[in-house]
Every structure is written in structure tokens, then in C-alpha cells.
Simulated assay, not measured.
Amino acid sequence: MTAEDRPAAASFPEKFAALAQAWRAQLPQRLHEAQHRLQALRADPSDGASLQELHRILHTLAGSAGTFGMPDVSIAAKAAEHECDRLMDSPHRAAGDFEDVTGLVDALVRATEA
């Protein structure tokens, strides 16, 4: 096969656009998972694994949303992540302790719809 026969390699902008499209396609599932973790935490506030997973989801969204052109989503995810940080530091959590993070995740979902 000669160089003329090989398909042209995708440019960086093309590769980045494909990554951004794939990230946006996965966003609804990530938000659903965050909401699912919140439901689990309201049912069992001591569920440390769900809190850590929620924190991981929010942290990932906070970092990647800005990269893929959604700064409002990044800001909303970061606010929810910080609230999770606060809750992770609390040894005794009650279901009501998750009201603030629930509101912040709701704001995050709204930010993705804008």
C-alpha cells in the first residue's frame, strides 16, 4: 500500500470533536448514575461507597465539562462535588444532610439542558 492509498489521518480538531461528541452522548447516563447514588444515600446516609462514587462522578464531570465546552456544567458539578466533600468529612450523616447536594445535582442537570 502506498501513501496515496492510505486514508488520511484525522486531524486534532476532528479527533477532539469526536471525543466531545462521545462525552456528550455519555452525559445523560452519568447524570442518571449521580441521581441514583443520591437516592441510595437518602435511603442509607451511611453508605460510604455511594458517597465516594457520587463524588467521583461529580469530580470527573467538573473536570471534563469545561474541556468539552460546557463551563456551566463544570461549575455546577464542582459546587456539588464540594458539598460531597463536606459530607464525606461528616462521620454521622442523616438523609436530610443530602438536601443541598440534591439541589446542586438538580442544578447540574438543568445546566446540561441549557
Rank of each mutant, 00 (worst) to 15 (best):
H59F: 06
M88Y: 04
L54C: 05
S50C: 11
F68T: 12
D5I: 02
E113Y: 01
E33R: 08
R56H: 09
V73A: 04
D72Q: 15
T67N: 04
M88Q: 10
G66T: 07
A8P: 12
A18C: 07
H32A: 15
K78G: 01
E33Q: 06
D97T: 03
M70E: 15
W23C: 13
A22I: 08
A22K: 12
A95V: 15
T102C: 08
S50A: 15
F68M: 11
F68P: 12
H55W: 10
L19A: 08
A111W: 10
A10V: 06
A34W: 01
E33D: 09
A9W: 13
H92S: 14
I75W: 00
Q35R: 10
E53H: 15
L38N: 05
R110H: 08
I75C: 00
E53I: 12
K15A: 14
E4S: 14
L58I: 06
A49P: 11
E33V: 01
G63C: 07
S46D: 14
R42T: 12
L58R: 03
A62W: 10
G103R: 09
Q52F: 06
L58M: 06
A40G: 02
G63V: 05
V101R: 03
G48F: 08
D106A: 13
D85F: 07
H36G: 01
G63T: 05
A114N: 07
E99V: 14
R30H: 07
D47H: 15
E83K: 02
R6A: 08
T60Q: 00
Q26E: 14
L27C: 07
S74K: 07
L87T: 08
A76T: 06
R6G: 00
E4N: 05
E14S: 05
L41T: 05
H59E: 08
A114P: 01
R37M: 14
P7I: 12
A49E: 15
D72C: 03
A79E: 12
V105K: 01
A62K: 14
A80T: 01
R56K: 11
